[in-house]
Simulated scan of single mutants.
Amino acid sequence: MPAALHVTETEDRLVVELHRPEVRNAIDRRMVDDLHGVCGDLEERPRTLIITGSGGIFASGADIAELRERRRDDALAGINSTLFARIAALPMPVIAALDGYALGGGAELAFAADFRIATPRLRIGNPETGLGILPAAGATWRLKELVGEPLAKEILLAGRILTAEEALDARLITSIHEPDELLRAAHDLADRIARQDPLAVRITKSVFHAPREAHPMIDQLAQAILFESDAKFDRMQQFLDRKKGS
C-alpha cells in the first residue's frame, strides 16, 4: 500500500506532504496514524513542521467512505480531534501550506497550525452539516478564535467556502503565493523561525497558548527560565557588539 505521507527532514525542520492523490488527499485512519508518528518524532526532537498536500490539493476532507461507517464509539474516540490537538501542541511552530481544497477535516488540520499560507486556488471551509454531521475536530471553537464569531457561523452553519482572498481578508491565512512558489514561501517562513533562539520560540509558543488566567505569572516564570539561558547572554552580547561596531 502506498505511503499516505511523504516526509523530508533536515536539522531544523520537517516537511510532510499529504499523499493520497487518488482521493484528493482525504484524511483516513492510516494517514492519522502516520501523522501521530510524525508528532512523536517532533515531540522527541523539536523542529518546525511544514504540512502541505500533493497534486495541487491540501486535503479535501475526511475520507467519506471511511467516515460513513464510523459510529458513536468512533466519534467518542476523537480520532481526528486527538491528532489535531497534538499537532497544535507541538513544541515548535507548524506551518500549513495550502493549495486547492482544504475542506472539512483538511480545514481543521490547517486551523491547528500556527501559520497558514496559501495559493490563489485555495478553497477552505467546513461543509460537514451538509453531510449530516458537525466539524468535531476543532473547527467549532478554533475557527471562532481565528476569524471571529459572525464569519465562523457562516462557514459552520451555512456552509460558506472561502476563497484565498476572502481567507486573507479574514486573516485566516497570512499570505498568498503562486503554486510553484508556495513551498519556497513556507521554507522562507521556517528560515525566519530558525533565526530565532529555539528555546525562546518553544517557550513563547507555550505561553501564547496558556489560558488567560495563567497570565502574567506564567510569563514571569517563562522569562525567568530564559534569563538564565546561555543563548540569552550570547545573543544580547552579539547585539551590543554589532551596535558598538556600527
Score class of each variant (00 low, 15 high):
residue 120 P to Y: 03
residue 230 D to W: 06
residue 68 R to E: 11
residue 169 D to G: 11
residue 153 K to E: 14
residue 181 E to M: 02
residue 149 E to V: 14
residue 231 A to Y: 04
residue 109 L to P: 02
residue 23 V to Y: 01
residue 47 R to E: 03
residue 82 T to P: 02
residue 242 R to P: 02
residue 131 L to T: 05
residue 89 A to P: 03
residue 188 D to W: 04
residue 144 K to L: 13
residue 146 L to H: 11
residue 227 F to Y: 12
residue 68 R to H: 11
residue 52 T to M: 12
residue 233 F to N: 10
residue 57 I to N: 11
residue 218 I to G: 05
residue 181 E to R: 00
residue 86 R to F: 09
residue 208 F to C: 11
residue 136 A to R: 06
residue 111 F to I: 07
residue 139 A to H: 06
residue 220 Q to H: 14
residue 42 L to F: 08
residue 52 T to I: 01
residue 141 W to N: 08
residue 160 R to T: 14
residue 219 D to W: 09
residue 113 A to R: 05
residue 110 A to L: 05
residue 2 P to I: 09
residue 49 L to E: 07
residue 228 E to M: 13
residue 230 D to Q: 15
residue 153 K to Y: 09
residue 3 A to K: 15
residue 12 D to C: 12
residue 213 E to V: 15
residue 176 I to D: 03
residue 221 L to E: 14
residue 44 E to M: 06
residue 35 L to P: 09
residue 179 P to H: 02
residue 116 R to F: 03
residue 197 D to K: 05
residue 105 G to L: 08
residue 69 E to Y: 02
residue 238 Q to Y: 04
residue 125 G to L: 06
residue 129 T to H: 13
residue 204 T to Y: 10
residue 121 R to C: 02
residue 132 G to S: 05
residue 197 D to V: 08
residue 91 P to T: 01
residue 55 G to F: 04
residue 149 E to S: 12
residue 38 V to P: 00
residue 181 E to W: 07
residue 102 A to E: 04
residue 83 L to A: 08
residue 244 K to Q: 14
residue 4 A to Q: 12
residue 57 I to V: 15
residue 146 L to V: 12
residue 48 T to C: 11
residue 197 D to G: 09
residue 161 I to Y: 07
residue 203 I to E: 12
residue 145 E to T: 00
residue 143 L to Y: 03
residue 50 I to A: 05
residue 104 G to N: 04
residue 173 I to H: 02
residue 46 P to V: 08
residue 220 Q to V: 15
residue 116 R to H: 01
residue 148 G to S: 04
residue 154 E to H: 10
residue 242 R to E: 14
residue 21 P to V: 15
residue 210 A to R: 06
residue 227 F to I: 11
residue 241 D to I: 10
residue 63 D to Q: 09
residue 108 E to F: 02
residue 123 R to G: 07
residue 18 L to R: 06
residue 110 A to M: 03
residue 97 A to W: 07
residue 85 A to Y: 02
residue 209 H to L: 14
residue 140 T to M: 14
residue 244 K to H: 13
residue 246 S to E: 10
residue 58 F to W: 01
residue 215 H to W: 10
residue 121 R to L: 10
residue 186 A to G: 07
residue 26 A to N: 08
residue 125 G to W: 01
residue 65 A to P: 00
residue 68 R to G: 02
residue 14 L to F: 05
residue 79 I to M: 06
residue 147 V to W: 01
residue 188 D to G: 05
residue 53 G to F: 03
residue 145 E to H: 01
residue 98 L to A: 04
residue 1 M to V: 11
residue 235 R to Q: 12
residue 200 A to T: 12
residue 212 R to Y: 15
residue 87 I to S: 08
residue 227 F to A: 15
residue 194 A to P: 00
residue 88 A to G: 10
residue 206 S to P: 08
residue 133 I to R: 08
